[in-house]
Simulated assay, not measured.
Amino acid sequence: MTEERPVLVATEADDVTADMVITELNRRGVPVVRFNPAEIGDGLTVSARYGIRPAHAAGRMLTPSRAAHLDDARAVYWRRPTWPAFPHLSPDDARFAAAQTRYGLGGVLHALTGPLWVNHPLRNAEADYKPHQLAQAERLGLAVPATLITNDPDEAREFVAAHHAVIHKTLRATSYQRDGVPVVSWAEQVTAEEIDDRVRVVPHLFQERIGKTCDVRVLVVGRQVFAVRIESDLLDWRRDYSALAYSVITLPAALEAALLAFLGTFGLMSGSFDLAVDHADTYWFLELNPNGQWGWLEEHTGLPMAAAFADLLTQGESR
């Protein structure tokens, strides 16, 4: 039995990946307080004091089933929380209430310096910029495909024409609907003829297509590195998970060290990297998801990913 210091888990109601970690923490006897900012009100109460003693009363969180002194938290697993939209209020009142929640509850949590964050939301946000990722990958000596980010259609056409094959990717995955139909943005190959003046509206990411033999998803948890080879005939393997084959691999030592250093520059304790491997066995950096999904990989490979997160959240380090 571990000492009675809870792990706070911030996530949405239906999060199978978080459930896997919580199950492992429960097995170890580690107290868990699960909450979602969207439940503020009857489902979530937070209080914090500043400039008042005793210091132990500085922060408190209550859910319908749990209570925690925030200063006692050993770790915060910032998984997939959602923020309230307040649909019962007028649009102006809803925006006001949402801002008070984000900067009130969010501010109280961000101020915590005692617990280990996996990952701190401010660090996640900084690492979520793809241009920043690509520049950092280059600085660390990782192979980066030729990439152009622009809203200049002439420059985009010139870039596409200069390479054998080019794909277009979104700069950030964003859930939205068009005429009531959910829109999903996949990586797509693009030709110079397809580029028109609509490119001027927002920046676009164009990237040289790597002649890959496979994709690799790498999950880093603390100092533990899990690498999975993903084989398919798809340009974007996320299109069809049923068409994928998985195998566990070991990364070259220099690549593993570079990925650990990459996370360190952003102050992240965990992250999911997407790499592509070409016919010369070169590993190409594609992107980092600082809070990527990994649950399905554990199910297919048996890798102890949930246990690694439990190690990190409980002990502050991985075995």
Rank of each mutant, 00 (worst) to 15 (best):
A253W: 03
T11C: 15
G51M: 06
P115A: 01
V166F: 03
Q293M: 08
A38T: 11
M61K: 10
V32T: 09
G302A: 08
P121C: 10
A192K: 01
L219M: 12
D281P: 02
A18C: 05
R172T: 09
V220P: 01
D128P: 01
H120V: 00
L286T: 01
W186C: 03
F96K: 10
V216R: 02
R28E: 04
A227Q: 01
E188H: 04
A97D: 06
A58M: 14
A73M: 11
D92V: 15
L313D: 03
A85K: 15
A243Y: 02
A308K: 10
V46M: 06
Y241V: 08
L312P: 02
A156Y: 01
A10F: 03
D93R: 15
P290M: 08
T82L: 10
E4M: 08
L234F: 06
T170G: 05
L134Y: 04
N26D: 11
V181I: 15
G43E: 00
A48R: 00
L235C: 05
T63P: 13
L303F: 09
I22M: 12
E188C: 06
R95S: 14
H120E: 01
A306V: 09
T150K: 08
A310Q: 06
P203S: 09
M1S: 11
Y241M: 10
R5N: 11
A38Y: 05
G292I: 04
Q133W: 05
V225Y: 00
R95T: 14
N119F: 00
R53W: 10
P304D: 09
T17H: 15
L263K: 01
L286D: 02
F96Q: 11
L255W: 01
N124V: 15
R95I: 13
A111L: 06
E298F: 06
V225E: 01
V202A: 12
Y176M: 11
R223Q: 15
P64H: 11
A146F: 06
P37D: 09
L89R: 15
A253T: 12
P145K: 04
S272G: 02
R139A: 13
A125Q: 15
A99D: 13
V30Y: 01
L260A: 03
R157K: 13
M1H: 09
F285G: 00
A10V: 04
Y77I: 10
R102M: 13
L112S: 04
M305T: 04
Q100I: 13
Q224K: 13
F226R: 01
E256S: 12
A13Q: 14
V277F: 02
M305P: 03
L62C: 11
T17E: 12
I40A: 14
K212D: 05
T301A: 08
V220C: 12
R49K: 14
D154M: 07
R198T: 12
E231C: 07
W117G: 00
Q136A: 13
T82Y: 07
A38H: 12
V201A: 14
P290E: 04
G271V: 03
R200D: 05
A99M: 14
V181E: 15
S272A: 14
R28P: 02
R319M: 06
